[in-house]
Computed example of a mutant assay.
Amino acid sequence: MMKILVAGGGTAGHISPVLAVIASIRKLNKEAEILFVCSGKDFEIDLLKNNNISYKIIPTGKFRRYGRGKFAELIDVKTQIQNIKDLGRTVGGYNYSRKIIKQFKPDVIFLKGGHVSLPVGLAASRMKVPYVIHESDIVMGKANKLLSKKASAIAVSFPVEAYKDVNNPKMYFTGNPVRPEFYINAELKPKPKKEQKPNIMIFAGSQGAESINNVLFENIELILKNFDVLHIAGQAGVERARFVKHRLPKELKKSYEPYGFLSDEMVAAYKWADIVVSRAGMNSLSELAALSKPSIIIPLAGSTNNHQFKNANYLAKQGAVRVLLQSELEGKRLVNEISKLASDHEAMSYLSTSIHKFFKPNSSTAIAELILSLGINRNMKEA
């Protein structure tokens, strides 16, 4: 029986693709025993239990960077104190990881990146256990960059040549895994309505949602006169969104549906939308690609390594998305951009076709095959 240790989590962006990979591993090798190492957040535990995945919790810490420049961050005492504390948690996570590896005896390890993967990867390297890492963004994160030096394979979401700062012959362009329901029976082209108002989904994201929410609220009546809007405002913004709806004129209320967060209903929300306004997290971009959705992307300003802008910019150069910078979110600019795109059905069709080219439906299977092949090779060497 092959044993596979998996590490990831901390955010939904780090755990959702891993669940897709685990599902593919189970299809390819029904006997595989899988153990998930996570940070122990409630949403992680719920997802793992719902998917019948055994897990272990380790202490983790992250290195905080806010895109303000090295000097500004160096003199930020509060941030540096937190970084020192989290360094201690990472050391603790490394020690826990060594114990888990010693007890579980995995044949191979899969690391999704981020602060949960780092201590597990360092322990794996020290204990000579082969591991595969996956990088979602076009800029490799610090944890993955460090772990890539001794990785047996590196799966990436963008074509290998897009990673200008990494030169590693073990890189494989697998794409970013999404759940099958995002692409099975999906419509590949938008269907503009002639009699009804176009449907706009505004997905503000869990981070940095406030700036998008504020612009929407400031222009809410103007946008609802022309569009039906499904608004995912984030848990911190949903109460205000509901209050805004309560104060709308009666004839506009039916055109606005605010939510804090969607999970199982997310596929239906995407399919309902003619145009999606979203951040540039890799999961969101991959889901848009799977469902061929014309989109206006607003990268999160100050994201680590400016990765959201670089993700979006790569796709924009392929003609796959429209990009609107957060600094440009003033006045009626967002409303004007949505109106401009909604009135140009040829542009919508082009965006739809272009972004779908970026989608790799067999991504989770490709990564699962990499993991299983390494496990088999190790077993053969030890036999």
Rank of each mutant, 00 (worst) to 15 (best):
M2A: 11
I4G: 08
G8V: 10
G10A: 06
A12Q: 10
G13T: 03
G13M: 06
I22Y: 00
A23Q: 14
L28C: 10
L35M: 13
L35R: 03
S39N: 07
G40M: 00
I45Y: 03
K56A: 08
I57P: 02
I57L: 01
R68Q: 13
A72P: 04
I75T: 12
K78V: 04
I81Y: 12
T90Y: 06
G92P: 05
K99C: 01
Q103I: 11
F104K: 00
S117E: 02
L118F: 10
P119T: 06
V129A: 06
P130Q: 09
E135Q: 13
G141R: 03
N144K: 01
L146C: 11
L147D: 05
S152Q: 12
I154G: 01
Y163G: 00
D165N: 11
V166C: 11
M171N: 00
Y172K: 13
T174W: 06
N176M: 10
I184A: 09
E187M: 13
Q196C: 12
K197L: 15
N199K: 15
A204R: 05
S206C: 09
N214P: 00
N214R: 15
E221K: 13
F227P: 02
E239Y: 13
A241F: 05
R247W: 12
K250Y: 13
F261K: 02
M266H: 01
Y270A: 04
A273E: 04
D274A: 06
V276G: 00
L285H: 01
I296P: 00
I297Q: 04
S303T: 10
N306P: 08
H307E: 04
K310L: 15
L315W: 07
Q318T: 11
G319D: 05
L325V: 10
Q326T: 09
R333C: 07
V335N: 08
E337Y: 04
K340I: 10
H345L: 12
M348G: 04
S349M: 13
K360M: 13
I367C: 05
L370A: 06
S373W: 03
S373M: 10
G375D: 04
A383V: 13
